[in-house]
Design a protein around this nucleic acid. Structure first.
Length: 571
RNA sequence: CGGGGCGUAGCGCAGGUGGCUAGCGCGUCUGUUUUGGGAGCAGAAGGUCGCAGGUUCAAGUCCUGCCGCCCCGACCA
């Protein structure tokens, strides 16, 4: 491809709206342009990269027996009502305004299950792995960070249909391995974490993560190999436990203590002796939740403990009405109204605790959960913190920000049951199909790669994602010798099967070198007058900025050693 | 949805206490000289100042409403 005729609008200056490196560079290198918040066009150079990623996805999905579909983005709303996901998705789903009964699909479990219901009737039809690479629509409240969070984006989504839970395990593991191969082939540094299934339903789920400050997810990782999304992460911190003897319950004035830190500073308590109380309205019922000291309540854990996402913190007015005190003086004893009380596992059967007296300006000390109040249930509700011992071998946990690249779920029968997708077993009994669902954010692969591979000059591509194999640069196209030699080398490279971006523009060397470094193709071949007169061309490696001179006639042979050949396509 | 910032040429920005013909840098076009790290000179084109309404002799500038974009938070398979 000759750059003089190729639409690659590079930017010398940083676009003001972009904050994260990948977003800035994708705009500057002419890969994408924004059309609206969370909506992007892919320009020719970027689309080449996108297609390289898509090829890898296709090859690896085909390799595990996946069959490629293309499902519609426009969906009848009825099918979403049948699975109860119109409510579950809420505002995230786009609804068509001028045609009744249509929505834009944010994911495709419903459509897949619809087709399975139509045509999967016997155990002989199973298992199946169905996938597609297609555009999803989600009405994100706040798109951000370029293509990392968009209202319209491309997803590789696949769905497994099995006749048994063992079959689901096999399909799930096939995807696990395929995803590892995909991200490894894309040369990403990634890790896998245990994750929450959230509104998807289902049992097990894992996420593929790339550590990045641009990420919106937070993960706990440890040297032992422990890795979990903070939403579900646990540690092996010892519980508070009991002290003997259990001292007498005592109310004491705390007029200037509103927070846990106030109590520590003014009265010399240690953090672990304190029991913090928060009140949530869960399924319209108030619940008092006790946490150790300054531990943070994890709402995802709360969701799984209570099996609902219909909860919210109580308002200050509700708080006073329910407990008889304002925030800062609330506790499990002497509550004005009788409500359910739950506590974090670390406080199980503990004593010697300090908590609010449900009377402004007073606390109790020496609280014994077995003696002084009734705890209805204990759950793991706390958010793990940096440095805590990991559950595998106690090695210290590190908290990192990460970008979610992919997510794999064991769905089970939620969708097959609600849509009636059943099959007959070999004894003629009907069962719901057992499903899994597996997604990869296609654009995120590209953004993550750039997050991990750039410097102050621009992107540093690597094979196989690079938009071209070689960036050929003629230093002065107006010189006849250079023009002729460059054209000849361009043709030779193409004949040898290389994808070449040839900068044949009449620009100064500085412009060409800077654009080449910004675009970031791994190998630049530079044709300059002095070198070519002596029969040499110059090879420059983008990543290291190393240069070497090669005799022109040995160029192709040399390139065979430094450019990896592409693996044969799977069929 | 709450808080903050911004909207002026293709891009990055100034002007903002109302007052000459709305500017600067980059880019673009023409000519010319240049050619190994974002060239020099000379000339030129390019604007409903986000939209609508209002105040005024006069609005890019003041007022009201709306729209859009970015950031923080909330939210989020």
């Amino acid at each position: 491809m000759k750059l003089s005729q190729y639409f690659v609008p590079t930017l010398k200056e940083e676009p003001s709206e972009a904050m994260v490196p990948s977003h800035k560079l994708m705009l500057r290198a002419g890969l994408i342009r924004q059309v609206s918040a969370g909506v992007f066009s892919w320009l020719p150079l970027g689309f080449r990269v996108l297609n390289k990623v898509i090829n890898i996805l296709r090859e690896e999905m085909n390799a595990i027996g996946g069959q490629e579909f293309l499902l519609p983005a426009l969906n009848p709303i009825e099918i979403w009502e049948q699975t109860g996901r119109v409510d579950a998705m809420g505002d995230v789903m786009f609804h068509i305004k001028n045609r009744e009964g249509l929505v834009l699909a944010p994911t495709h479990e419903e459509i897949i299950t619809y087709h399975a219901r139509q045509h999967i009737q016997s155990y002989k039809d199973l298992p199946q792995i169905w996938y597609q690479i297609q555009t999803k629509f989600r009405n994100e409240p706040r798109p951000k960070s370029g293509v990392l969070r968009c209202r319209q984006f491309i997803m590789k989504d696949s769905y497994s249909l099995d006749l048994s839970w063992e079959g689901l395990d096999i399909s799930y593991n096939k995807h696990l391995e395929a995803y590892k191969k995909i991200f490894t082939r894309c040369k990403l540094n990634f890790f896998i974490v245990g994750a929450s299934s959230g509104a998807m339903g289902g049992s097990k789920s894992q996420e593929f993560m790339v550590e990045s400050n641009a990420g919106e997810d937070v993960c706990a990782i440890a040297p032992s190999g422990y890795a979990a999304n903070l939403e579900v992460a646990t540690s092996s911190l010892p519980p508070v436990g009991r002290k003997e003897p259990s001292l007498q319950l005592e109310k004491f004035p705390t007029p200037n203590a509103k927070t846990i830190d106030d109590l520590i500073n003014q009265f010399g308590f240690i953090e672990n002796e304190l029991a913090k109380s928060v009140v949530y309205i869960i399924n319209s019922e108030p619940v008092l939740i006790l946490m150790r000291g300054n531990d943070e309540l994890n709402e995802t854990k709360l969701q799984s403990a209570f099996g609902t996402n219909k909860f919210r913190p109580a308002t200050p007015e509700e708080l006073f009405e329910i407990t008889g005190a304002n925030a800062g003086s609330i506790g499990p004893i002497n509550l004005k109204t009788k409500i359910k009380i739950v506590a974090d596992n670390l406080l199980k059967d503990a004593n010697g605790l300090v908590s609010g007296a449900n009377e402004d300006g007073y606390h109790y000390k020496n609280i014994d959960f077995l003696r002084d109040c009734h705890i209805d249930a204990y759950y793991d509700l706390r958010t793990v913190r940096e440095g805590e011992p990991c559950p595998i071998n106690g090695s210290p946990i590190k908290i990192v920000k990460a970008i979610e690249l992919g997510h794999i779920f064991k769905l089970g029968t939620k969708y097959s049951e609600s849509l009636g997708a059943n099959f007959l077993d070999n004894e003629g009994n009907e069962h719901p199909i057992i499903m899994g669902s597996y997604g990869i954010g296609v654009e995120r692969i590209i953004a993550c790669f750039i997050e991990q591979n750039h410097d102050e000059k621009g992107i540093i591509w690597d094979y196989p994602l690079t938009p071209f194999d070689i960036h050929l640069i003629s230093v002065n196209i107006k010189t006849e010798l250079i023009r002729n030699e460059s054209e000849e080398i361009y043709q030779i490279l193409i004949k040898n099967g290389y994808e070449v971006l040839y900068d044949d523009r009449d620009e100064t060397p500085g412009v060409k070198f800077n654009d080449a470094d910004l675009i970031g193709i791994p190998i630049q071949i530079i044709i300059g007058e002095k070198n070519i007169k002596n029969g040499f061309v110059e090879i420059k490696f983008r990543r290291t900025q190393q240069r070497e001179l090669i005799r022109k006639e040995k160029l192709i042979e040399h390139l065979k050693h430094i450019i990896p050949s592409q693996p044969p396509n799977f069929q």
